[in-house]
Design a binder for these strands. Structure first.
Lengths: 163, 163
DNA sequence: ATTGGAATGTCAACAATACTGACGTAAAAT
DNA sequence: ATTTTACGTCAGTATTGTTGACATTCCAAT
């Protein structure tokens, strides 16, 4: 009886069910990155470049610090990636007018073009997964993802939604 | 009208919704690995060690080739990790009796202990996310994850469920 | 006006994780 | 007897991350 009550009210979770969730995340993340990775390979870029392109596109004019806090890496690590993207003219810098220490980041036309290619590939798989799973599943998917984030990232995630 | 029909039947997905899914995966994966990473750091191990421990625990007695196909890395990459785990006596080797070329992999007591530590931390976050999102969300979460995997990994994932 | 601190960039060194390619050994399969 | 398979290993390289140190630029407060 106690068991039945748990099942109904408390969300009864076996180790096995949790393990499935863990392995699901592991395997799904591989699928999630597979298509962009193939495109990036052709241009000799990596996932770090993809992430930078994605968020510069998402938040045009962002400064470096803001991008750092979204990406969760060190400035040295980001800088290497950013430098190549700027050299290759996928990203352009604009020095802040109000605060001239700040560098505002934008995608160039070629940058937008590559970002589009990458996001199209990734969205395609996401869309297909959503279609297979159905609308209710999608809502649940997002809820669990959001609950899995660190609180700070949850805030970042929500801010991106709004802007 | 056409729009309404799309919304109901076809699962109407805006670019914005897909982007949320993409960013959700990105941020959630960070949360997903954060707790184990902290533990691994203390022992000077990395995620690769965690993954090896996880799947050796999940499929005790697995041979190297099978583990390779689950993890999706090269044997050279896995070998480096496996060698340290064996040196540190977290993993033990047993030469196959039927086919003596095969090395069967098992966790030692210390291996089990570390794996337990890691999976407890990771499960704790997963359980908490499940609890916050609720049972329906969890079902949807798993469906979308599964649909996002490459077909081969989907098979691998399901095989692990059964065993 | 000088000073303190923040934002940024850069150099160097290092570590983890991945890759390719080549080679060796042992055992199984044909 | 030969080929294939399973596994290990050596060498070299790339990507992405880390610390630490140091320079520059510039805002803001004293």
């Amino acid at each position: 009886m106690q068991n039945d009550r748990s099942r109904e009210s408390l969300l009864f979770l076996t180790d096995e069910q949790l393990r499935q969730g863990i392995e699901g995340m592991f395997f799904a993340y591989r699928g999630f990155t597979a298509d962009p990775d193939r495109i990036l390979d052709k241009y000799n870029y990596g996932r770090a470049h993809h992430r930078a392109l994605h968020f510069i596109n998402r938040v045009p004019g962002t400064n470096v610090n803001n991008l750092l806090s979204i990406l969760g890496v060190t400035k040295q690590s980001l800088n290497r990636v950013l430098r190549t993207l700027i050299e290759h003219e996928l990203v352009s810098l604009k020095i802040g007018t109000k605060d001239r220490r700040e560098r505002h980041l934008y995608l160039t036309e070629s940058g937008k073009s590559l970002e589009k290619q990458l996001s199209t590939a990734q969205s395609h798989r996401m869309r297909e997964a959503y279609r297979q799973a159905g609308p209710d599943a999608v809502a649940g998917f997002k809820q669990v993802l959001e609950a899995m984030m660190d609180p700070k990232l949850q805030v970042t995630y929500k801010k991106l939604r709004v802007s």
